[in-house]
Nucleic acid binder design. Structure first.
Lengths: 126, 126
DNA sequence: CCATTATTTAACTCATAGGTTGATAACTAA
DNA sequence: TTAGTTATCAACCTATGAGTTAAATAATGG
C-alpha cells in the first residue's frame, strides 16, 4: 500500500539534505552534479534523494542533452500548509489576540489597538 | 548526532497514525487508551507513537493517578509553518498578484484594487 | 566508433522505524 | 495484601532508508 500523499511529502521533507536541495532549487533550476556539489556524499546518493523528491512531487526533471535539470514543484508544500492551518490557532498568539479582540468588540465595543500583521494570515477552514 | 528539530518534527508528522493522534488531541486531552481505541494496533505501538510525538515536542504528558493524559503542543508546527513561508511564493497565486501590484505601483502608480486577504500572510525572510 | 561527461541502477551494508508479545511498573480499589 | 487497570519496557522481527562502490545507460564531440 502506497502511503498517502501528505505522508510522502512530509517524509521527503524530513531529511535535511533534501530540504537543502529544495532551498537551492528555490534559487533556480540545477543539474544533479550542481546539486550534489555542496554535499560530502556520492552522486548516487544525491540521485536517490532527487528520486524521493520527485516521487513526492516536489521536483520535476527535464532532459537537456546529457543533463537532467531539476525544477522545484511547490504544490505539495501547499498541501502541507493547508494541513497546518487547522493547527494554527494552537500556536499563533496573535490569533488569540484576534479572538480577544472580537470578544471585546461584542461585549464592550471599545476602540482596540491595531492588530499585529502576523494575525492576518489566518484563512477560513474549508 | 541528533537530527535537527525541524527534521524531527517533520519525520514525526510523516506518519498518518501520528497525525491522526494530533487531530484527536486538537479536540482535547486524552489518555493513551483513549487515543489507541480507533487503531488496529497494540497499545504498546500507540505508546511508541506517543513517545515519538513527545520527542518532537508535539505533545506533553502529565500524570493523573494511573493515567497519562496527552496534550497537544503545537509550537513545533509553528516552526514548520515558518519554514514553509519561504516557499509560499512558489504556489500562492495571490502573491504573484501582490508582486504585480508592487510592480504596477512603482511604474504607473495607479489606484490599484484591494488585495485578497490570502496574500497578506507573507512574512519577511529572516 | 570511441572517449568523455552526466546520471542512474544494482547489489550490498548498516541503522532505524513500526509493529509484535510478554513482563513489569504505577496506581486504585476492595 | 491482592487483584485489576493503565501504561511502559524489553526483546524480537521485518521492512525501509540512507549511504557505499561498481557497473550500466544516455548523450556529446571528436
Amino acid at each position: 500500500m502506497p502511503p498517502d500523499q501528505l505522508s510522502q511529502t512530509l517524509s521527503a521533507l524530513a531529511d535535511p539534505t533534501r530540504r537543502s536541495i529544495l532551498a537551492r532549487l528555490s534559487i533556480g533550476d540545477a543539474t544533479v552534479s550542481e546539486l550534489a556539489e555542496p554535499y560530502d556524499m556520492s552522486l548516487a546518493a544525491v540521485s536517490k534523494h532527487l528520486k524521493v523528491l520527485e516521487g513526492a512531487g516536489l521536483i520535476s526533471r527535464s532532459r537537456e542533452s546529457q543533463w537532467r535539470p531539476c525544477h522545484l514543484e511547490a504544490e505539495p508544500l501547499a498541501a502541507v500548509s493547508e494541513w497546518l492551518e487547522d493547527y494554527r490557532r494552537f500556536w499563533d498568539r496573535s490569533l488569540d489576540s484576534l479572538a480577544d479582540y472580537l470578544k471585546t468588540m461584542k461585549t464592550t465595543n471599545p476602540k482596540p489597538s491595531r492588530r499585529s500583521p502576523k494575525s492576518s494570515s489566518r484563512k477560513l477552514k474549508k
